[in-house]
Design a protein around this nucleic acid. Structure first.
Lengths: 236, 236
DNA sequence: ACGTTGGCATAACAGTGTTACACAAAGAAT
DNA sequence: ATTCTTTGTGTAACACTGTTATGCCAACGT
């Protein structure tokens, strides 16, 4: 009777926790980084600023949660991409999904990958692992490309990284507003992806065909607008 | 006697202006974004916080100045790269210079290209034009590659953008800490650059030779450590 | 039913960017 | 040389930020 562990006379409310993340994400998306403050979040959630500290420890903790949610979103976008018998087209659609996700969550994206410090938050190695895990979908796709004889026998992790880097670079400059009229983002991406796909062993004709196929699939498998709020809510 | 224009009874001191930028840049580089405050800057400069407002209007104005200085630094790095009769090697060295500059000024770099909002600063179209101007060195190099018959007859601006995007993507993920051991930054960059260079028309043998040549030139033409402080001071 | 425990609100603290205001310094005009 | 005017700069305040010490009270285990 001495070591009886008394736990949780009052549990943390998971609903308010989720609400805080949602509100923070909305504030960030709608009004930018400057609008992200404990007081504004608490006011919208109908609580006090303490809620942020009991649930997340600090503002950085909340940002970290948002970052993880961002990775989860990206993974869900990836999951929507079908695995067809044209894995190279799949790869192109994955790239488009990455772009679309980044554009839909542009403020969060900079924190997830750019290393931007938002409210004093900075990535930990654990966070990065979380991010790298998302890349596994791309690695798997690269593996299927190799197995299908489209790509040269090579390290699928390296191939996935190539795609990641190119897409990431494009998205970053696109979001930064640097890619304008004569040399716009779509044109650049087509050219780069083409070169990379040929570079890893596919032949030009097959690449052209796969990229054309991917363009048809984009609209179906990767919708531009973010998923409706009900879907997010029902997942809880 | 009514419209006599009375000007400047007391001029802005360009020395304190430069000192403020320098101090701000150092604080940013050494202690991160959180350490960038008017009071800290003013304290180090031996002035009051008002100096920031008379010289730059606001904190964002000072950040803008730092961004422009960042572009100028990049351009100086580019200027160090020689224009040889192997323009493809030149291109590879330029890419290395871009990487090196980004790593030496990593905090500023995210603001310059990533669109990170630092102290409420966000890029204006004028700032972006400033950034695009820096790319002209790369466009020129691409033109020389075409004239030398190494690259296919194509839009040099598009080619420059390809290189920019790939290098930028690599640098961003590198700075974010995402590129680790088995698939590190150097390995990725070599592979991607190779694919892109072949993709714009050069043949594999020439690319390999040029990249090998570029590796020898790197250390000479692009020193890793930032330029000594005296050089910066004497330029004023 | 009761007592413990931990979530939450309140209010304070140290810090931030920004600004109104007074002062002083420096060039222009006499 | 002296005065005048203009304007940079220091002081102090304002509204705001993240964070935390301190209570209160609701909810859970007993």
């Amino acid at each position: 009777m001495c070591n009886t562990v008394k736990v949780s006379p009052r549990k943390l409310d998971p609903e308010t926790r989720a609400a805080l993340v949602d509100i923070a994400a909305r504030l960030l998306a709608e009004h930018g980084a400057e609008a992200l403050s404990t007081r504004k979040i608490a006011a919208e959630a109908g609580t006090s600023t303490m809620a942020v500290y009991t649930h997340f420890g600090s503002m950085s903790g909340l940002v970290r949660e948002m970052v993880h949610e961002g990775f989860a979103r990206l993974e869900r976008q990836f999951a929507k991409v079908r695995r067809t018998d044209d894995p190279v087209a799949d790869m192109a659609v994955l790239g488009y999904a990455y772009r679309q996700n980044a554009k839909a969550n542009s403020h969060l994206y900079a924190v997830m990958f750019g290393g931007q410090s938002l409210a004093g938050f900075s990535l930990t190695e654990e966070d990065r692992q979380y991010g790298r895990y998302t890349l596994l979908t791309v690695v798997d796709c690269a593996t299927r490309c190799i197995e299908a004889g489209r790509f040269r026998q090579d390290d699928p992790l390296l191939i996935a990284h190539e795609m990641w880097i190119a897409t990431h670079g494009l998205v970053n400059l696109e979001l930064g507003g640097y890619l304008i009229d004569p040399v716009d983002a779509d044109r650049c991406y087509d050219t780069i992806l083409n070169s990379l796909l040929v570079g890893v062993g596919d032949d030009q004709r097959s690449v052209s065909a796969s990229m054309a196929a991917s363009k048809k699939r984009r609209r179906r498998e990767v919708e531009a607008d973010p998923e409706p709020a009900e879907a997010v809510a029902s997942r809880r």
